[in-house]
Simulated assay, not measured.
Amino acid sequence: MSKEISYTIEEVSQLLKVSKLTIYDLIKKGDLPVFRVGRQMRMDAKDLDHYISNNKTNQGTTPPAQELHQQRMEPRASKNIVISGQDIVLDILGKHIEKSSTYKALRSYSGSLNSLIALYNGECEIVSLHMFDGDTGEYNLPYVKKILVGYPYILINLVSRKAGFYVQKGNPLHLTTWADLNQENVKIINREKGSGARILLDEQLRIHDISSKNINGYGHEETNHLSVASAVSTGIADVGVGIEKAAKIVGIDFVPLITERYDLVLLKTPENEKLIRMVKETLSSQLFQSEINSLGDYDHSQTGSIIYETY
């Protein structure tokens, strides 16, 4: 690549086929150097090439002839699995599963409800959920019971995390409750239909008897937490709903309003027996939990706990 070429964070995430949250985390750790043009972060092509080169496995090594022959005679059959959801924790889960098995973890970045429907349609294997039910005050299970009718499944806790408002530094409009959104001078940035953050907002509006028609900016949508946080950071909106991690990455203030349970659901089929066992072992491992703990802003006290299971 030419030294004059540089990429936006969005372009880097597309090139590496990971979420923008993963890229921001690598930047925060110092693994990927960036520079700024105004408010936009960019990355030199040579720095991206250097990162990719340094993280390739088996660099400069050639297996012995006998080992190479054995690899050819006894290939390890791999099976693709799709993990759906946006959180960086899912990237870490996929990495651990790949290290311990012949599974190849592919990522889909759909929102919770759309992911659950995709699971129903057989389009993915592991789905992450954070869907609040206003009638019960519970996360995820009410939706799973309604959508996975007739399917055996298991619901396992991944992590818990804070959800709330993204606001500008100092919270100039003093937004602290859901009712505060019902003001003409407050402009929100929304998430797409089917996302957990959108469901949380809609349920809270329903509970507080607030019409979405009265919410300034309700129809302006973004498709991930970072984009919503960035819109607040740049002044496009005054407030958005999302998780604490993205606020810290972007550098804005966060008003916590609820602790959400972020769960995984898998179908209990004969083909999935090994995968379910692998997921349980991974979530319960000290190595995985230590890696999650190092990220900050996640509660792993229930990680690996079975929330609900059909028999």
Rank of each mutant, 00 (worst) to 15 (best):
Y103D: 04
S13D: 02
N216W: 00
I292T: 10
S6V: 00
N121A: 05
G111H: 03
I243Q: 13
E74I: 14
S101W: 04
R36D: 00
S227R: 15
Y139K: 10
K162Y: 09
E138K: 14
K268W: 03
D135I: 11
V144E: 08
M278W: 01
T8C: 04
I243P: 05
I307K: 07
V127L: 01
Y109H: 02
Q59W: 09
I23H: 01
V18S: 03
K187M: 08
K99Q: 14
F132P: 03
M278P: 03
G137E: 09
S305C: 09
V149L: 14
D49K: 14
R42I: 05
H174M: 12
A231F: 07
V37T: 08
D44R: 01
G60Y: 08
G219F: 07
N182C: 11
G150F: 10
V232W: 06
Q204L: 09
H208L: 11
G150D: 15
V255N: 03
P33R: 00
Q66R: 15
E74D: 13
Q14A: 09
R107Y: 15
D238F: 01
Q40L: 14
A246M: 01
M131S: 15
G194E: 07
I236G: 10
G122A: 02
L26E: 07
M131E: 14
F288M: 06
H208R: 13
S285I: 13
T259G: 04
S294V: 02
G134L: 04
S290V: 05
P172W: 03
K274L: 14
K56M: 14
V241K: 03
F132K: 03
N272F: 06
V279W: 02
R198K: 15
V127R: 03
R161Q: 15
I92S: 07
N58H: 11
I189F: 01
H220S: 13
R107N: 08
P33T: 04
K213R: 12
L113C: 03
Y7D: 00
Y24T: 00
Y143I: 15
I258L: 12
K56L: 09
G111W: 00
H300F: 10
L264P: 11
Q286V: 14
T234P: 08
H208I: 10
Y151N: 14
S211W: 05
D91F: 12
S294I: 02
Q286I: 14
R72L: 14
S19D: 05
E11D: 06
T62K: 15
I5F: 00
H300D: 11
S108P: 07
G94T: 08
F288L: 05
D263G: 04
I83E: 02
N58E: 14
V159D: 04
S115G: 13
S112Q: 01
S301D: 09
F254P: 13
K145R: 13
G38C: 02
A77I: 15
A118C: 04
R261E: 15
K187N: 07
S233H: 13
I117N: 03
D49N: 11
V228I: 10
R39V: 08
D253Y: 06
M73E: 15
P142Y: 05
